[in-house]
């Protein structure tokens, strides 16, 4: 009886080891498959990227640096075309405003309103009369609105983005200051605060 028990416990131990082996084997197989899939996905992602217009560079460039590069290109193009850019004054900065002030300016139409969000969001809804000057496509958008913006760099310009936590409005405002605009306002609450206050919105057709 004793020997029978001892054999049984050994077999139980053997079965446990076998089960552990099976678990490791199954998880190992899953991990191996996953590794193959991950490699295939990386190859596919690189191919897809080459099909993009323009492809994403393989080294990251920060938002701030990309915007600075865009501003430099705008300055270069203006140098060539007009040779007429007023230099940004050392004291010129943007000013943050709240909803009541922004609303008043929009209603009185005394301000050029600029939407710094990506264009897709602008299409879905924006502050009445706002022009899309997205942070991401600053160079192209600025070229589009040059005729509206450049006649007077002394005019009031107000920039907003999606919400108080987004940085795009401040970044675009700083870029405009660098381009010589003297009265740049930032509506910090952005689209989020505007819609929460149930104020009128406009949609692009």
């Amino acid at each position: 009886m004793k020997s029978a028990l001892s054999v049984s416990s050994e077999e139980k131990k053997g079965r446990g080891e076998l089960s552990a082996f099976r678990w490791q084997h199954v998880i190992g197989t899953d991990l191996l498959r996953l590794g193959v899939l991950a490699t295939a996905c990386m190859c596919a992602a690189l191919v897809f990227n080459q099909l993009r217009e323009p492809p994403l560079s393989l080294t990251y460039v920060s938002k701030q640096s990309r915007l600075e590069q865009a501003v430099a290109r705008v300055v270069d193009s203006e140098d060539k075309s007009t040779e007429n850019i007023p230099p940004a004054t050392a004291t010129a900065t943007s000013q943050v405003i709240g909803l009541p002030e922004f609303q008043q300016l929009v209603q009185s139409k005394r301000v050029v309103v600029l939407d710094a969000r990506p264009e897709i969001f602008h299409r879905l809804g924006h502050v009445p009369g706002a022009l899309s000057l997205s942070r991401e496509a600053f160079e192209q958008d600025y070229a589009r609105w040059r005729s509206v913006l450049e006649p007077s760099r002394d005019q009031l310009v107000a920039v907003y983005c999606s919400s108080a936590s987004c940085e795009d409005s401040q970044m675009v405002a700083d870029a405009l200051v660098k381009l010589g605009y003297r009265h740049v306002l930032v509506f910090k609450g952005g689209w989020d605060e505007w819609t929460k206050a149930d104020l009128p919105e406009e949609k692009q057709q």
Partner: peptide, 27 residues
């Protein structure tokens, strides 16, 4: 935009951010 989101974590070097931003959505 996803690469910008990854950058806010400050966990990866610039050489890894865009590769992750390209690979992860496909994966």
């Amino acid at each position: 935009s996803f690469a910008d989101s990854i950058a806010t974590f400050r966990l990866l070097p610039p050489q890894g951010i865009n590769l992750l931003a390209l690979w992860l959505p496909v994966f």
